[in-house]
C-alpha cells in the first residue's frame, strides 16, 4: 500500500513532465499535421540551457535562494528555447509546406539528429550533473514496515508549476485572440487565411508555445533527476509522443491526460514488473495505441478525404 502511494506520487510527477512535452507534439500535429520528431531534442536542449543558467546564477553571481534562481532559470530557458523553436520552424519546416508528404518528417528527423549532436559537440558526451538542491521531503505517513511515504519539495514544485503553467496556457488558447487564431488554423487553414489570419505567424507561435512548454519540462526534468546528457531527448520524446497519441493527438486535455497515464504506467511497471523492460513497455504501448486506437482517448477519429 505504501509503495503504491509512493509510486502514484512519482508517477504523477513524471507524468506532468511528459504531459508538458506532449502538448508540443499535439499542438503542432493539430495545426500542420506533422509529427515534430525533433521536439524531444528541443526538450533536451532546454534542459541544457537551464543547467547552464543555473550554474551562472549560483556559482558566478552567488545567488543563494534556490527558488528564486529556479524561477529566473525557468523564464530564461523558456525564452531561449522558444527562439530555438521559432528558428527550427523557420529553417526546417516552413519551406516544406506543399512538399511531398514525408518531407517534413524526414526534415524533423534531420533536425533531431542535428540538435543532439550539436549539444554533444558543444558540451561533451558525458552526463552533466547539477549541484544537489532541494533535498527536503515531507513524510506523508509511515507504513507498518517502517516505509516512509514521502513527497519531496521537488515533486511539489514540479506538479505545482505544471498546473500553473497549464492554466496560463489554457487561458491563452481559449480566451485570447491568438488562441482563437490558432484554433481556427487547426480547423481549416485555408479558410482562416481567407478571413485575414496570418497563418505563418500562427504556426510560428504554435512552435514557440510548444518549445516554451518543453523548456518548462526540461527545467523540471533537470530539477527532478539532477542530471542531463545529450541523448536524453530521444526516449522522453518518444514517451511524450506516445502520451499525445494515447490522449488523442490534436487534443490538449488529451495530451496532459496521456502524459499522466504514461507516467503512471512507467512507474508502476518499474515497481511491480521489471525495470529493464520499462522502455519496451513504453514503445509497445506506442505501437499498440497507434495500431489499434489511432484516435486516442479524447481525439476525434480522422476522416480520410480524397
Amino acid at each position: 500500500m505504501e509503495i503504491f502511494v509512493q509510486q502514484l506520487i512519482n508517477g504523477l510527477t513524471l507524468g506532468s513532465i511528459y504531459g508538458l512535452i506532449a502538448i508540443g507534439y499535439t499542438m503542432v500535429f493539430g495545426i500542420i499535421g506533422m509529427v515534430n520528431f525533433a521536439h524531444g531534442d528541443v526538450f533536451m536542449l532546454s534542459a541544457f540551457i537551464a543547467l547552464i543558467f543555473f550554474l551562472i546564477l549560483t556559482t558566478w553571481l552567488g545567488m543563494t535562494s534556490i527558488v528564486l534562481a529556479l524561477l529566473i532559470v525557468l523564464v530564461i530557458a523558456m525564452v531561449l528555447t522558444s527562439l530555438w523553436g521559432w528558428a527550427i520552424e523557420r529553417i526546417a519546416y516552413r519551406p516544406l509546406r506543399g512538399s511531398f508528404r514525408l518531407a517534413p518528417l524526414i526534415s524533423a528527423i534531420g533536425v533531431s539528429i542535428f540538435l543532439s549532436n550539436f549539444v554533444q559537440v558543444a558540451q561533451g558526451a558525458r552526463n552533466k550533473p547539477t549541484p544537489p538542491m532541494m533535498r527536503e521531503v515531507i513524510v506523508l505517513f509511515q507504513g507498518e514496515s517502517g516505509y516512509n511515504v514521502a513527497l519531496s519539495y521537488k515533486q511539489i514544485v514540479i506538479m505545482a508549476s505544471t498546473a500553473v503553467l497549464l492554466a496560463i496556457f489554457w487561458y491563452l488558447v481559449q480566451k485570447t485572440s491568438l488562441g482563437r487564431a490558432q484554433r481556427a488554423c487547426e480547423q481549416d487553414r485555408k479558410m482562416a487565411a481567407l478571413l485575414g489570419i496570418d497563418v505563418d505567424r500562427t504556426i510560428s507561435l504554435t512552435f514557440v508555445i510548444g518549445a516554451a512548454l518543453a523548456a518548462v519540462a526540461g527545467t523540471m526534468y533537470l530539477l527532478y533527476y539532477g542530471v542531463v546528457s545529450f541523448n536524453d531527448g530521444f526516449v522522453p520524446g518518444v514517451k511524450a509522443f506516445t502520451a499525445a497519441v494515447l490522449g488523442g493527438i490534436g487534443s490538449l486535455p488529451g495530451a496532459v491526460l496521456g502524459g499522466l497515464i504514461i507516467g503512471l504506467i512507467e512507474t508502476f511497471w518499474s515497481a511491480y514488473f521489471s525495470i529493464e523492460y520499462k522502455d519496451v513497455a513504453a514503445f509497445s504501448i506506442l505501437a499498440i495505441v497507434l495500431i489499434f486506437m489511432p484516435s486516442g482517448i479524447l481525439g476525434r477519429p480522422e476522416v480520410e478525404k480524397v
Binding site: M34, L102, V238, F241, F283, L286, L290
Partner: peptide
Amino acid sequence: RLRGDYLAIVTLAFGEIVRLVLIN
C-alpha cells in the same frame, strides 16, 4: 493500415523494442 508518419513511428518503436529485447 497506418498513414505515412504513424507507420514511421511504429517501425521506430519496433526497431527499439528489438534492440531492448536483445539487451535484456
